[in-house]
C-alpha cells in the first residue's frame, strides 16, 4: 500500500487526533472505555487510514502502565483485527454491517492484549476475566461510536479525502 505525500501527512494528522482524543477524553467508567477506539472504523472507508490508526494506537499506548509492551501488542491487536476485517468485508456493501462486524472482530481479537497481560504476569487464571472486560469495553465503544463515525463522514467524506 503505497502512500502519496498527502496521504502520508493526513495519516500523521489523524494519528495525532487519535492521541489528542485519548488524552482529552480519558477512559470512562469501570470498564475503562477508550472513546478513541472509534477511529478503528476509519480504515473501512479507505484502507490507507490503517497507518494513522496503528501509529495513533502505538503512541497513545505509551501512556498505559504496561508502556512499551502495550505499544507492541496493542498495535499488533489492531493490525491483525484490520487484516481479518479487510478479508471478511470484501463482499459486504452496507457500511453499517461493516461497522458492526469491525466492532465484533476488534472485540474478539482483544485476546491478544489479555494474553499479553496474562503472559507478562504469568497469571493465566485471570485471563478469561481480563479478556471479557477488554472485549466488552471495545465492543461497547465501537458499536456506540459507529453512528458518530457515520455522522462525521457526512461532513468529512473520509473515503474521498484519502483518494486524492
Amino acid at each position: 500500500m503505497k502512500l502519496s505525500t498527502r496521504q502520508l501527512v493526513i495519516n500523521a494528522l489523524f494519528a495525532a487526533v487519535y492521541i489528542v482524543i485519548t488524552i482529552f477524553l480519558p477512559s470512562y467508567g469501570s470498564l475503562q472505555l477508550r472513546l478513541s477506539e472509534m477511529f478503528a472504523h476509519l480504515p473501512l472507508f479507505n484502507k490507507k487510514y490503517a497507518y494513522g490508526l496503528l501509529l495513533g494506537v502505538a503512541i497513545a499506548n505509551f501512556q498505559s502502565g504496561f508502556g512499551v509492551y502495550d505499544v507492541i501488542f496493542g498495535t499488533l491487536h489492531s493490525a491483525i483485527s484490520l487484516l481479518i476485517v479487510f478479508l471478511l468485508t470484501k463482499k459486504i456493501k452496507s457500511m453499517s454491517k461493516k461497522l458492526v462486524l469491525n466492532s465484533m472482530i476488534f472485540a474478539a481479537m482483544s485476546f491478544i492484549v489479555a494474553g499479553m497481560i496474562a503472559y507478562l504476569t504469568q497469571d493465566w487464571v485471570a485471563f478469561w476475566v481480563i479478556y471479557a472486560s477488554i472485549a466488552a469495553s471495545i465492543a461497547i465503544v465501537m458499536l456506540a461510536t459507529a453512528p458518530i463515525i457515520l455522522a462525521l463522514d457526512k461532513h468529512i467524506h473520509f473515503r474521498q479525502l484519502m483518494m486524492k
Binding site: 501527512v9 500523521a12 494519528a15 495525532a16 492521541i19 497507518y51 501509529l55 495513533g56
Partner: peptide, 16 residues
C-alpha cells in the same frame, strides 16, 4: 514512512 508519520504526529499533538 512509519517513522515520518510518527514524527509528524508527535509534532502536531500539542498544536491539536
Amino acid at each position: 514512512e512509519i517513522a515520518l508519520i510518527l514524527s509528524i504526529a508527535l509534532r502536531f499533538v500539542p498544536t491539536l
